[in-house]
């Protein structure tokens, strides 16, 4: 098996972050890295105070990437994210002041507080990877990862993302409370926000670009494609589900599985890679029938996965 480019470095970052700075957030970290490697975006859905921002900060500094942050409010305008032209009197012309989105890693905090207009401007930028302001198109930097957070509990004065827009995020996940021992350690230690600011970069930006390129090279075989398609088809034919996975959802599954295989040091996707990313990639793309809205999406997905055997031969 030929060696995958930069896979050790990537795993080292994960290892370093999860063991030193962000204990108990392996899963979220891993998924974020996968999103970054596939060029997707990630939506963290959890209550405030579980370290979403800390994680994003640490992630950016460990990868040696620039970090931008947008705190959403209901009066946030699209230009607050993208940036705007300001007249420079001394030079006598308009200068474009870049907004926070012109960073490698952009944390959009509480995306559901922004009004739909701002949300869609943001989503458009995520999709297109460039911003057009006053007729001029500005390319966003590479690599580019949007880490959006959403508070599922608070509902007053929010504009929750509709399912169709959730589809733009490759991965949606929660963070969850850290395990007891780790949380006690955190309590003892206090906040590590300052410390995180000084995490040395473990990789360089072009390492990441190389890694992203080699994730694209990961091979997806017929068996894996068949397996993925079987899952998609099962969600489309399921009695409880109104709209199953879209094709974009399927692509997302395969992309995420590629990243997972890459992080496992394989240059091909195994069926279990696909199965492992299903829970991160799929639930937010499924629309249940109105009468079954209360059903736990994870359960339904588990049942579907149980029905479809992994292709072993």
């Amino acid at each position: 098996m030929q060696k995958l480019a930069k896979v050790d470095e990537m795993n080292a970052v994960l290892e370093e972050l999860s063991s030193q700075h962000l204990k108990g957030k392996v899963r979220a970290l891993r998924l974020s890295l996968m999103a970054l490697l596939t060029g997707g975006h990630i939506l963290l859905e959890d209550i405030p105070g579980l370290g979403k921002t800390t994680m994003a900060l640490a992630f950016a500094s460990a990868l040696g990437l620039s970090f931008g942050r947008v705190q959403c409010t209901s009066d946030l305008l699209p230009s607050d994210i993208t940036g705007l032209s300001v007249f420079d009197r001394s030079e006598g012309r308009f200068n474009f002041i870049r907004g926070p989105i012109f960073n490698n890693i952009v944390l959009i905090d509480e995306i559901n507080r922004a009004m739909p207009k701002t949300q869609s401007a943001l989503l458009e930028a995520m999709e297109e990877r460039h911003v057009t302001v006053e007729g001029v198109t500005y390319q966003l930097p590479e690599p580019f990862l949007v880490l959006a957070t959403q508070n599922p509990v608070e509902q007053v004065g929010t504009y929750p993302l509709p399912e169709s827009q959730m589809d733009r995020f490759l991965i949606r996940t929660g963070i969850g409370y850290p395990p007891e021992e780790i949380e006690k350690g955190i309590l003892r230690q206090g906040s590590i926000r300052d410390e995180i600011m000084h995490i040395p970069a473990l990789v360089r930006s072009d390492d990441l670009v190389t890694a992203i390129a080699s994730v694209k090279e990961v091979y997806v075989g017929d068996k894996v494609t068949d397996y993925t398609y079987a899952i998609i088809k099962a969600t489309r034919n399921h009695p409880l589900i109104l709209a199953g996975l879209s094709t974009r959802g399927g692509i997302g599954m395969v992309d995420a599985a590629k990243a997972a295989a890459y992080l496992h040091g394989r240059d091909f996707v195994a069926p279990e890679d696909v199965r492992d990313v299903v829970h991160a990639v799929c639930p937010h793309r499924l629309i249940f029938r109105p009468e079954h809205e209360g059903v736990d999406k994870e359960h339904v997905l588990n049942a579907i996965l149980k029905e479809i055997p992994l292709p072993l031969t």
């Binding site: 091979y219 068996k223 091909f268």
Partner: peptide
């Protein structure tokens, strides 16, 4: 599985 998977999942 290293050997086997490399072949089988490479079709």
């Amino acid at each position: 599985v290293g050997v086997y998977g490399a072949a089988v999942y490479h079709d």
